[in-house]
C-alpha cells in the first residue's frame, strides 16, 4: 500500500513534470520567436522563471488544499481503515437509500444490550420473588398456626367458662 498522501504528491508531481515537458523551452521560444531572436538569454531566464513560478504556485495550492480539508490526516486515517479491512474481500455494506432501513442496524446493538440487561433483571427479580414467595408462604403458615393456637386457647377457656354454668 502506498500511503494516499504520498500518492497524491506523486500524482501532482507527475502532472507537473508532464506539463513542464509539454511546455518545453523550445516550444516557448518558438511561440515567442521574435523576442527570442532579440534576447535569447532573457528568453531562457523568463522561461525558467515561468516554470519555477508555475510549479511553486501549484505545489503551494496543493498544500493549501491539504490544510483546508485536513487532507493528510483524513487520508492517513483512510489508509488505516483500508489496512484494517485487508482480510475482507467481498463488497461491504453501502447505504440503501432507505434511511429507516439503514438506521435499524445502528440501533440493534442497543436493543440487544437492552434485551440482555432486561433478561438479567427479570431473572434476578424472579429469583428474588421465589424467595419472597417462600417467605410469604412460611408467614401464612405461621399466622395459621398462631390462629389455631389462639383458637385452641379460646376453646379451652370457653370450656372452662362452661364449668361454673354446669356447676
Amino acid at each position: 500500500h502506498i500511503p494516499k498522501v504520498k500518492l497524491l504528491d506523486t500524482v501532482v508531481d507527475t502532472f507537473l513534470q508532464k506539463l513542464v515537458s509539454a511546455g518545453s523551452y523550445e516550444r516557448f521560444a518558438k511561440c515567442y520567436k521574435r523576442f527570442y531572436k532579440l534576447q535569447p538569454e532573457m528568453t531562457r531566464l523568463i522561461y525558467d522563471q515561468f516554470i519555477t513560478q508555475l510549479q511553486t504556485s501549484i505545489r503551494e495550492e496543493v498544500s493549501t488544499i491539504k490544510e483546508e480539508g485536513n487532507l493528510e490526516a483524513v487520508l492517513n486515517s483512510l489508509d488505516k481503515i483500508v489496512e484494517e479491512a485487508e482480510d475482507r474481500k467481498e463488497p461491504a455494506w453501502r447505504p440503501s437509500g432507505i434511511p429507516e432501513d439503514d438506521v435499524r442496524s445502528t440501533l440493534i446493538p442497543y436493543f440487544l444490550q437492552q434485551q440482555s440487561s432486561l433478561k438479567r433483571l427479570v431473572q434476578e427479580q424472579e429469583r428474588e420473588n421465589v424467595k419472597l414467595a417462600e417467605m410469604v408462604l412460611e408467614g401464612r403458615k405461621q399466622v395459621l398456626e398462631l390462629q389455631q393456637q389462639i383458637q385452641a386457647r379460646k376453646q379451652a377457656w370457653q370450656m372452662l367458662t362452661q364449668v361454673p354454668k354446669t356447676l
Binding site: 497524491l8 500524482v11 481503515i81 479491512a85 463488497p91 461491504a92
Partner: peptide
C-alpha cells in the same frame, strides 16, 4: 486511488 473508498471498506 486517493479520493476513493474501496468497495470492501466499511466506514
Amino acid at each position: 486511488l486517493v479520493l476513493n473508498i474501496p468497495p470492501n471498506i466499511l466506514l
